[in-house]
Design a protein around this nucleic acid. Structure first.
Length: 559
RNA sequence: GCCCCCGUAGCUCAGUGGACAGAGCGGCGGACUUCUAAUCCGUUGGCCGCAGGUUCGAGUCCUGCCGGGGGCGCCA
């Protein structure tokens, strides 16, 4: 990447300046190259002269001059200038810029890839909710963040696995089974009451009726506990996960692996991990329960693993689960995408890593702030058990997957967001996603028009991109060249919101080019320029499609 | 009480310690006989919550306060 090459050149220049005596000998701070906010300051800029002033005991302006004097030549550097109080600004060479159009076309759908992952294996686990009902819209943020991040990390050179953790064990599942049983019995005309704190949602009634219609009174004839277990299983596998899978598919999300919590208990992982913890002296029996001594490992308090009833809790499963991720499956890095309501669990997870002898840095608990749902400005209270929830699928019906993904992606994960259903329905037409998609459709339209005029790809294959020197053309190329940097930034900071912002920026730059530069000309004198511009337009299409693809948003050929 | 996140234009939000703080929406005024006007151009609009501190330089880092959200269970 240009940014890195530039950094290297500047480092070399500093060393050389020191060798030649232009600069005193001192340990240079790390060179950082950034993109200035103002276009007038060029494409890249470094503040290294300012950083070094004290160490070199020279004025920043003098240091900058010494560095620039010794800067090695490079084909991509057009202009280097020094600006007060000591910035060194670089402007890319116009000819080099134009040539990058060919580089983008050659890279095709790989354009934007970087290699900071170097093939390291990372697992992104997201979406994992109790499979006891349909996904509600708040969870949309979880799956959209997780899935987009997985895309970004794959583009950044990681080997990525997408996983859904199926919580098919534990007390909530019991409760779910009992609730389903009650509704099932009712569906068959029996008297039955929902358990206390049972799941009250209408969807349980619907599912119970479907099961009754299919299986008749089969479960009533079984032993109650057996029937509850069987119904819970059926409900999870056929109903709940089915609806999760369907919602995800509409959002373009396909998991590589669905991991069963219960399998940890049936395959011996859980017992093995418990004995490891016991050997490490991380467990303690207190008041009939087994505690994990998290406090002495940096947790904020000790945690119950196995309740006095003998039932393991959720955290116990989590330890076994992460043992499986790191030790059994050997992931280098694991990212769990969690809502802010789980933020308090971070310290105990880190403690768990230490107890297993693993570097806590290898586990990232990515916390996003919750989505508050509104209906015409009013808060909507959400509870799966109480049955008051807005299903993700309903919002997908109303607004469409592209707008939902774009909207949920646009904010930094640290900022809480309101999702006003009324507003979303009304304003879905104003969603910026259409602005970006429109740019793509417009490009497709230009290429169609060109083809109709006889400008097939073969006919402009010999186009000379060095003819591209209009300011709007060069601005567009510059913007496209940012893509790898955006991918890198999004990957390093686990910050997918950079993508929609960049996408809008890119679309705006394209629209400006479209305004200023006629692509397909009927004037024979413009034939060569038309060819070059068609290549530019093609590169724009590649770039736009790539960023949309990373966001999981479709890139339409027409609108 | 303690812990985490946020507070930037009327609204929704960007802003990797740098150079005059940006975008979209909204408001106002313009541009379709031309490859898609779901577009473009102009304009309006800011004690970056408040108070200190660190730094050559703070919207960005630190401390305190105020306001909003989330958490602190033998629930998940």
């Amino acid at each position: 990447m240009i940014k890195d090459e530039l950094t290297t050149l500047i480092e070399k220049a500093i060393k050389k300046a020191q060798r030649k005596g232009d600069l005193p000998k001192y340990e240079s701070p790390p060179v950082t190259v950034e993109r200035p906010k103002q276009a007038a300051y060029g494409d890249y800029s470094t503040n290294i002269a300012l950083q070094s002033a004290r160490l070199a005991r020279k004025s920043p302006m003098d240091i900058a001059a010494a560095i620039v004097k010794r800067l090695p030549k490079a084909d991509f550097i057009g202009l280097v200038d020094i600006a007060h109080p000591g910035f060194i600004n670089f402007t890319l060479d116009a000819g080099w810029l134009a040539r990058q159009v060919e580089a983008i076309r050659a890279a095709g759908e790989r354009w934007g890839n970087v290699d900071i992952g170097q093939g390291r294996r990372v697992q992104v686990e997201y979406g994992s909710a109790n499979p006891t009902g349909p996904l509600h819209v708040g969870f949309g943020r979880n799956v959209v963040i997780g899935d987009t991040l997985a895309n970004v990390l794959a583009a950044a050179g990681y080997q990525v696995q997408r996983e859904y953790y199926v919580n098919d064990a534990g007390t909530q599942i019991q409760l779910f089974g009992r609730s389903l049983y009650a509704r099932y019995a009712q569906a068959l005309g029996r008297e039955a009451e929902l358990p206390e704190n049972g799941y009250r949602g209408q969807y349980i009634v619907d599912w119970a009726q479907e099961i009754a219609a299919m299986a008749g009174d089969k479960y009533l004839r079984m032993d109650y506990e057996e029937a509850v277990q069987a119904l819970a299983d059926l409900g999870i596998r056929e109903k709940a996960l089915g609806s999760v899978r369907a919602d995800c598919e509409r959002l373009g999300i396909i998991y590589d692996h669905w991991f069963s919590e219960r399998s940890l208990y049936t395959d011996g992982t859980f017992d093995h991990v418990m004995s490891l913890l016991r050997q490490g002296d991380h467990l303690e029996l207190r008041e009939g329960a087994v505690w994990f001594k998290a406090a002495e490992l940096g947790g904020d308090k000790d945690e119950v693993l196995i309740r006095s009833t003998g039932e393991p809790g959720y955290f116990a499963s989590d330890i076994a689960y992460h043992y499986d991720k790191f030790i059994t499956r050997g992931f280098d890095w694991v990212i769990d995408v969690w809502g802010a309501d789980h933020q308090g669990h971070v310290p105990r997870m880190k403690a768990m890593m230490r107890a297993l002898g693993l570097d806590p840095e290898r586990l990232t608990l990515l916390i996003y702030q919750l989505v508050t749902l509104k209906e015409a400005g009013e808060d909507v209270r959400l509870s799966k058990r109480a049955g008051t929830m807005v299903r993700l699928s309903e919002v997908l019906d109303d607004v469409g997957p592209d707008a939902v993904r774009f909207f949920l992606l646009a904010n930094a994960i640290d900022s809480q967001m309101d999702f006003d259903l009324t507003l979303a329905r009304e304003q879905s037409q104003e969603n910026p996603v259409y602005y970006v998609q429109y740019a793509h459709a417009r490009i497709a339209s230009i290429l169609r028009h060109a083809a109709e005029q006889g400008w097939t790809a073969e006919r402009y294959a010999d186009g000379d991109v060095s003819l591209l020197n209009h300011p709007s053309e060069l601005t567009l190329i510059r913007k496209m060249l940012e893509l790898p940097e955006i991918v890198e930034m999004a990957a390093r900071n686990l910050a997918p919101h950079h993508l929609p912002h960049y996408a809008q920026d890119l679309a705006a730059t394209f629209h400006a080019f479209y305004r200023d530069c006629r692509v397909v000309s009927s004037d024979p004198a413009d034939e060569e320029l038309t060819k070059a511009r068609l290549k530019l337009v093609e590169a724009s299409k590649i770039t736009l499609a790539r960023v949309l693809g990373l966001m999981g948003v479709s890139a339409p050929e027409r609108m």
